[in-house]
């Protein structure tokens, strides 16, 4: 390296992707650029690998950070959110619980908080299967068309927010919120996207998530939907994204799997 490094951002030894990966891993990007780079992590494994490489290189710096014992209340809070059956017998079942929708302000456009190491919030709700006899396991064929597909869409922190089930016979996608969503900001609407492999997100249209709803989606749009594709929901202006690509924050994602 020559001289005191004042070449005004000219970095011939790095590709633009490497520079972006470094900036993201370091945490130096402003909000919009950071969000765009985080979105890219989920569809671009090569880029993700670059980011993870820089994260690993920088992580030894953390050794100089003094540990600070958190108060006990933090663990209690974690327990309350992760326990499968919280002991809250006094609360009526129907009482609206202080939901993550509120606490994470997901619908306020605060955005997608993914991480490089765990970029894809992938929660596949394992379907309850009857135990199969060994012989049946051996002969079971995965492809029995038409196939129903389902995805559990989770926020960036992995919290399941809603489930989406694609019924090919009816040509509908049924969206069921896992928690009661906060009202969207005025003038915005959630929009459903499918991300297939490395292709850019494809819109499946705007959706209503105020309660369980069946959304008819044209067969043209739905063509090619298959297990492994990622569903994502972004917050867009009324009427849907003006550009054909997500323009607002991605608030939930999940992978489609066959059920």
């Amino acid at each position: 390296m020559s001289g005191p490094d004042d070449m005004q951002g000219d970095m011939p030894e790095m590709t633009p992707d490497e520079i972006l990966a470094l900036d993201l891993a370091l945490g130096a990007l402003p909000r919009e650029e950071r969000r765009a780079a985080q979105l890219r992590l989920r569809s671009d494994p090569a880029f993700r690998a670059l980011v993870e490489g820089f994260e690993a290189d920088l992580s030894p710096l953390d050794a100089t950070t003094d540990p600070v014992l958190p108060p006990r209340s933090v663990w209690e809070g974690i327990l309350a959110e992760t326990a499968p059956q919280p002991v809250r017998t006094a609360a009526p079942v129907s009482a609206p619980k202080p939901s993550l929708w509120n606490s994470l302000a997901l619908w306020r456009g605060l955005g997608f908080a993914g991480t490089a190491a765990a970029a894809i919030a992938l929660v596949t709700a394992a379907p309850q299967r009857q135990p199969l006899a060994p012989a049946e396991v051996a002969t079971a064929t995965p492809e029995a068309p038409p196939q129903m597909l389902a995805a559990s869409l989770a926020g960036a922190d992995g919290t399941p927010l809603l489930s989406a089930t694609w019924d090919p016979l009816r040509g509908t996608v049924v969206i069921t919120p896992a928690a009661k969503p906060e009202a969207e900001a005025a003038g915005t609407t959630p929009e459903l996207w499918v991300i297939e492999g490395d292709k850019p997100p494809r819109s499946l249209g705007t959706i209503d998530i105020s309660g369980p709803n069946a959304h008819a989606i044209s067969s043209q749009r739905i063509a090619g939907l298959q297990p492994g594709s990622t569903l994502a929901i972004s917050i867009e202006p009324m009427g849907g994204s003006p550009t054909g690509l997500p323009t607002g924050p991605v608030v939930a994602t999940g992978k489609l799997s066959a059920i």
């Binding site: 909000r31 950071r34 605060l110 908080a113 490089a116 190491a117 922190d157």
Partner: peptide
């Protein structure tokens, strides 16, 4: 095979903190 558990967890913590800061 891709990260140590401490690095993985610390990366989540850093990213979540920076996201909060940027928000």
């Amino acid at each position: 095979t891709r990260a140590s558990p401490v690095t993985w967890a610390a990366t989540i913590a850093r990213n979540r903190s920076i996201d909060r800061l940027r928000a």
